[in-house]
Design a protein around this nucleic acid. Structure first.
Length: 956
RNA sequence: GCCGCGGUGGUGGAAUGGUAGACACUCGGGACUCAAAAUCCCGUGAUCGCAAGAUCGUGAGAGUUCAAGUCUCUCCCGCGGCACCA
């Protein structure tokens, strides 16, 4: 027999398949459709490394599997080629971007073709093709028409190295994601898309999607929805001034914690807030304020927003606001820890319950007022009982420490069976510290105490006080004393009878040992040197009529009283959509002195990118296109006068935000996609790729929803299911990259081991979503597997399939099919290996088993499967054959191995041919010779029998 | 800090609450060979044992269960996302 020559058969079949158009997708079909899409590549100058095809191999296997199961499959490929990477590559290599892109695409296509994918290349698209970007521009015109694209002069992120504005999504920790330069804030004219209008739908519709949780969570985080209230703080004495229209009379803040408003002791306004500009001259310290504003401007965004940086700010002296809940006058500050672009650009500061406000208040000596108590419920030791009355008490807890002995004072109550620190009630008008002293003296007799500190604000605890047979809601203050002398006064007999006075180590204070519910909190507070903000929810205190309510109740009722409107805020920013660069889709608008911004007529699309000599960025904040007078100067479509073209271009992410639609109808020159094609193919059933967890997947969802709103698409979401892949790492565990010198080229692997081995190896490496390091030496495993299948051809016999072989086959068909559907390719491959190992052991394989095996193998190793398939005499392609069907009745063996356990530990097994009931299984198990030893001196108390699987004998 | 996902042999990994380590790689031994490669066969979690076998074992600790890698809680570690977002 001929040896397995992968080169020969792979080239042969790739050619043949193309000739026979095996993978041509039908535009219309009576079959159900299935749209399988890869995140199309950005053809870089470096070519593909072995990591790139991983997703393509998976989608290829999946699409072939679907085709064999009777679906009309759309599995296309194309190129995303506009944008910075291609342009920077072109500048560096001194070639025109269009030439570079052309060359890179050719290289990518060649590299992909030798892997043997089932793409229908007649549907290939390229985002830089005018016939394609005509429709990208068309979508922009529609966005403009609907008011979702607009010009803005707000400061944006500017990359000084790439010399262009960037969207928030293009930053990574305040740095340009492409070149790692620190981004600056630069005010400039730019085009912005109102993605924030879709924020709510972008979050809500995530629920409709079969996507990994991690990606959904990443998107939710990015959109950052939070529900709260807007509250207006009127300025004190603002009515005294003659009303000027430009003058602010109030400051609006956004808060998610309206329940803490009684603790709002000052306001903070962001430096960018227009309020500051209009009010700063009225501050008594206006010079100082101006100085602060100037200082802020000098800070970079990274400096300003780093969490661990000390907060700075300045008071607007003489300006006071009124807390609408308390009616009190509070001071107003300008500080850059408040962000100008989030919420209303101003906050009510609640230093007792917000860490940032707390740090700021500490630094500037501002008042701290506690208005939310932690609420502890004793669920474990003495849980509140629904059938008992409840009493509210004001308590004090005294923690007494003896520094000489390093011990703490506790009381042990034998009768109740508990240990406690000293507890007592606070009498009306009594100071907690005095109350604590009194209680220590009464209950233990110790009098020589020095007061060290109070352990934070009071806390509320609910528990059942069994000695009083009632529930307690105790509001308790913790007081910490140190013992300075062992002098004791007599205590009453009654108290002495109940409690034993003990000194214990700190390790006695672990949860559970002490009866006090508050104990863990006291320990935590003792360990902290200073006080900290309590940011959790709880029970309101010191909040007028609202005291005693829970945080949630408080928010609701306070909102009603002070008329605070509910408000939802998002972290998501609008999409900065213009780039001051050459290599992108021209934004199709014309600026006219008379008419302003005028959209280009749809009939004039595409506005093609003019060929230029100089495409390097100008650095002036203008695109290089601005220098091409003959392109820029045009006629205003509205008035017929002189007009200038918009010279900014679209970002890299524009073309990829809708490309999946174009594959449905790639050559349509009248429509972006025909309604029929869209209806038939939408949505993408499975989308395969990695990386772009947020950016591309949010932009595309946004555009899709917009296109849905204007009736272009019929579905509300573009990608029904997302299979997110883990990248293949280099052998050294790092990312595969040219600069690390650890890149493995797929061409080399295909040449040495064959495309089928490469495909199989990448799928066998591990779970699809795992990032796993490449190991060239491990490919040998799958290569051997393929060679075994190759050799099996000699063992094919025209016989009836033996039952054992049949069982193995049907198990394999079932397992492989289910696993492909779930993208568990590694276990699908191992199922085939198990079958091959099995039939090898038996020595022969029936013709029908072999044919079925080849059909299961076909999606994974299409070339070898085809070669062997046709060698068996089949004349049509294996890829047009159907997926084999398994018979559930043939999955189970007529022999069962029953595991025998004693007390849950496996001790023996036995084989049975018949279905055993519990009694006979028990008989057989107990009759095993090994069992005698295990059962000696024990009595069987219970037997658990899982039919045909396991028997567990439980002994007493 | 918050959110999400993980932690199983030397390695990649497998395991509807039911005999942990499938399937591979590596390594060791053997066959074939003048020899090597390739291929084939046997072995390969740890400890003890000549062996039969026994004990331990899925990051740590507790819990639920006849039975836990799998479920619950606490903690440790790793990865990813977000992060002065009020």
């Amino acid at each position: 027999m001929e040896a397995y020559d992968h080169k020969k058969i792979e080239e042969k079949w790739q050619e043949q398949w193309e000739k026979d158009q095996v993978y041509k997708t039908e535009d219309t079909s009576s079959k159900p459709k299935h749209y399988v899409l890869d995140m199309f590549p950005y053809p870089s100058g470096e070519g593909l490394h072995v990591g790139h095809p991983k997703g393509y191999i998976a989608s290829d296997i999946y699409s072939r599997f679907k085709r064999m199961n009777g679906f009309n499959v759309l599995h296309p490929m194309g190129w995303d080629a506009f944008g910075l990477p291609a342009e920077n590559f072109a500048i560096k290599n001194k070639v025109h971007p269009s030439a570079a892109v052309k060359k890179n695409i050719a290289r990518f296509k060649e590299q992909l073709s030798i892997i043997g994918f089932d793409y229908d290349w007649s549907r290939e698209i390229n985002t830089t093709d005018p016939a394609y970007y005509k429709w990208t521009q068309w979508i922009f015109l529609k966005l403009l028409e609907k008011g979702l694209a607009f010009e803005s002069h707000e400061p944006i992120n500017w990359c000084p190295s790439c010399q262009t504005g960037l969207a928030n999504e293009d930053l990574d920790g305040g740095r340009c994601e492409r070149c790692d330069s620190e981004a600056e804030k630069k005010p400039m004219r730019q085009w912005v898309l109102k993605i924030t209008d879709y924020a709510d739908r972008l979050i809500k519709d995530l629920d409709l999607l079969d996507w990994p949780d991690s990606i959904k969570t990443a998107q939710r985080n990015w959109i950052g929805r939070s529900e709260g209230h807007e509250v207006e703080f009127t300025l004190a004495n603002s009515t005294k001034h003659k009303a000027q229209s430009a003058e602010h009379k109030s400051i609006k803040v956004f808060t998610t914690r309206l329940d803490t408003i009684y603790g709002a002791t000052y306001l903070v306004v962001a430096p960018e807030n227009p309020f500051v500009e209009s009010t700063k001259h009225k501050a008594q310290n206006s010079k100082e304020v101006q100085q602060y504003l100037d200082d802020c401007k000098k800070k970079t965004e990274i400096e300003r927003t780093s969490v661990d940086k000390e907060k700075t700010g300045v008071e607007l002296k003489g300006i006071k606001a009124i807390n609408p809940a308390t009616g009190e006058e509070i001071s107003v500050w300008v500080a850059d820890y408040v962000l100008g672009h989030y919420g209303t650009g101003a906050v009510m500061a609640v230093p007792a319950h917000d860490e940032r406000d707390h740090a700021f208040a500490k630094k500037y000596g501002l008042p701290i007022k506690h208005v939310v108590m932690p609420h502890l419920v004793d669920y474990k030791v003495n849980p509140p009982r629904v059938d008992k009355p409840s009493k509210t008490r004001r308590n004090v807890h005294a923690i007494v420490f003896d520094p000489k002995e390093n011990k703490y004072l506790i009381l042990r109550n034998e009768k109740q069976g508990w240990d406690t620190i000293i507890i007592g009630g606070i009498e009306d008008g009594e100071d907690p510290v005095a109350a604590a002293r009194r209680e220590v003296e009464e209950e233990s007799g110790y009098t020589n105490l020095i007061y060290k500190r109070t352990l934070g604000a009071p806390v509320q605890a609910s528990y059942f006080a069994k000695h009083k047979d009632e529930n307690r809601v105790a509001v308790t203050t913790g007081v910490y004393f140190e013992l300075v002398g062992h002098k004791r006064v007599p205590i009453t007999d009654e108290i002495a009878d109940d409690n034993e006075v003990l000194w214990v180590d700190a390790n006695h204070f672990v949860p559970g040992t002490m009866v006090n519910t508050e104990m863990p909190l006291w320990i935590e507070r003792m360990m902290l040197s200073g006080d900290v903000a309590y940011t959790g929810e709880g029970v309101l205190s010191d909040s007028g009529e609202f005291s005693g309510l829970t945080s949630a109740e408080g928010r609701e009722t306070i909102a009603k009283k002070i008329k605070a409107a509910p408000k939802t805020t998002y972290k998501l920013r609008d999409w900065v959509f213009s780039r001051q660069r050459y290599w992108g889709e021209p934004i199709p608008v014309i600026h006219c002195l008379l008419c302003g911004v005028v959209p280009v007529s749809e009939d004039d699309l595409p506005i093609t990118l003019p060929p230029v000599e100089q495409y390097a960025p100008t650095g002036t904040g203008e695109s290089p296109l601005a220098n091409i007078d003959e392109w820029v100067n045009t006629v205003c479509p509205s008035c017929g006068g002189a007009g200038k073209r918009e010279t900014n271009t679209m970002p890299q992410w524009a073309g990829s935000s809708w490309y999946y639609l174009r594959f449905m109808d790639p050559h349509n020159d009248r429509q972006l996609v025909s309604p029929q094609a869209e209806k038939y193919w939408s949505p993408v059933d499975v989308y395969v790729g990695g990386d772009h967890a947020v950016r591309h997947l949010i932009y595309a969802r946004f555009w899709h929803k917009f296109l849905h709103d204007i009736g272009v698409v019929s579905t509300s979401e573009p990608f029904a299911r997302l299979e997110f892949l883990g990248f293949i790492l280099a052998e050294d565990g790092r990312k595969m990259a040219k600069r690390w010198g650890n890149v493995i080229n797929p061409d080399d692997i295909v040449s040495t081991y064959g495309a089928d081995s490469l495909r199989l190896y990448e799928m066998f490496m591990g779970p699809f979503e795992n990032a796993i390091a490449w190991q060239t030496k491990s490919i040998i495993g799958v290569r051997r597997f393929l060679e075994r299948i190759w050799s099996l051809r000699e063992k094919v016999k025209n016989v009836e399939t033996p039952p054992e072989e049949e069982r193995l086959l049907h198990q394999t068909i079932k397992k492989a099919g289910e696993d492909i559907a779930e993208f568990k390719f590694n276990t699908a491959v191992s199922a085939m290996m198990i079958l091959v190992n099995g039939v090898e052991k038996m020595g022969t394989i029936s013709r029908s088993t072999y044919m079925a095996l080849l059909r299961v193998l076909a999606p994974f190793a299409p070339h070898m499967a085809e070669e062997l398939w046709q060698a068996l005499g089949n004349t049509d392609s294996v890829h047009r054959s159907s997926w084999p069907v398994y018979d559930p009745a043939k999955l189970v063996s007529d022999e069962h191995v029953i595991a025998v356990q004693i007390d849950g530990k496996s001790r023996d097994t036995f084989i049975t041919k018949e279905e055993l009931d519990e009694t006979s299984a028990r008989e057989q198990a107990l009759a095993r010779p090994k069992m005698q030893k295990w059962l000696e001196g024990r009595t069987v108390t219970k037997v658990i029998y899982i039919p045909n699987k396991l028997i567990n004998i439980v002994t007493g």
